[in-house]
């Protein structure tokens, strides 16, 4: 692997691209762009957020690309368009950071299953492969052990990752990739691990959105771009309250929070 630049000139804005939110944005993953943008703005770092819809050209010069989760059909269409454009491939070659969620992680791998379960070639940017397994869909809170990200500045500890998963695939990380963490509660990749990291591409099954629930991961991604020293502390009180509550909920195996017979009767 070629050595990737770890810092950038700070006089220009950080460019964040949301890729195809019209195809892959089903589970609130657009929130990741909001989180990254605010965390830069609050620190006085200029940010430019670009939304690229299906059919539009993919710029190859941005600093960070976000690929969200989505449904089976649009997942195939997004793969086709990204393969044709090659913009994301060139950006990765240039050292861009990528965060890919759920279906987004699956299509960035070598292979993924389509709506009929047929294995299709992915973009091959993330060293992993996703297969369909014969089990019920994994839906619920996902909690990991303390996650780690290896960067040029050393190993960054991200704390436990918390989020919500909703997927049917099993993702097998390749030899050239790392995982984010081990699963404490939930399914994750399906082999007891969660997430795939290849270079500066991070894939995860965590929705929530993942960066809203895990600010240290957000800052780690930004650190790759602006350098860790530029990331002054922020007031994350609201996020801390949410994390405490969600981590406990996952450990309590909250599938149906305070589900009462009245609710069931009312609804059905």
């Amino acid at each position: 692997m070629t050595s990737l630049p770890t810092t950038r000139l700070t006089d220009s804005a950080v460019r964040i691209v949301s890729l195809y939110p019209d195809l892959l944005g089903t589970y609130g993953d657009g929130g990741n762009a909001i989180v990254l943008s605010r965390r830069l703005e609050w620190r006085g770092i200029a940010v430019e957020h670009i939304t690229v819809d299906a059919g539009e050209p993919v710029p190859d010069s941005a600093d960070l690309y976000l690929v969200g989760g989505g449904e089976d059909g649009p997942q195939v269409q997004a793969t086709r368009e990204l393969e044709q454009s090659q913009g994301l491939h060139r950006a990765v070659e240039n050292g861009a950071v990528v965060l890919a969620i759920c279906a987004g992680m699956q299509i960035l791998g070598h292979r993924f299953p389509d709506v009929n379960g047929t294995s299709r070639p992915g973009l091959g940017l993330l060293d992993c492969e996703t297969v369909r397994v014969d089990r019920t869909r994994a839906v619920g809170e996902l909690l990991t052990t303390s996650a780690q990200l290896t960067t040029a500045d050393g190993i960054i500890d991200l704390g436990p990752l918390t989020g919500f998963e909703n997927h049917a695939g099993r993702t097998i990380p390749g030899n050239c990739s790392q995982t984010l963490a081990s699963v404490e509660v939930g399914e994750g990749n399906g082999d007891g691990t969660e997430g795939v990291i290849t270079g500066k591409i991070v894939g995860t099954y965590l929705h929530g959105p993942v960066l809203a629930r895990n600010p240290l991961l957000a800052d780690a991604l930004l650190g790759w771009i602006v350098g860790a020293s530029a990331l002054t502390p922020l007031n994350d009180t609201d996020v801390e309250s949410l994390r405490v509550e969600r981590i406990q909920a996952a450990r309590d195996h909250e599938l149906a929070p305070r589900r009462s017979w009245r609710d069931i009767l009312r609804r059905s």
Binding site: P257, R259, R267
Partner: peptide, 16 residues
């Protein structure tokens, strides 16, 4: 906002 069975357990749509 609640996230009981009738609401759906995942309120991440708040970000949409």
């Amino acid at each position: 906002i609640n996230a009981r069975i009738a609401d759906g357990h995942d309120p991440s749509w708040l970000w949409d």
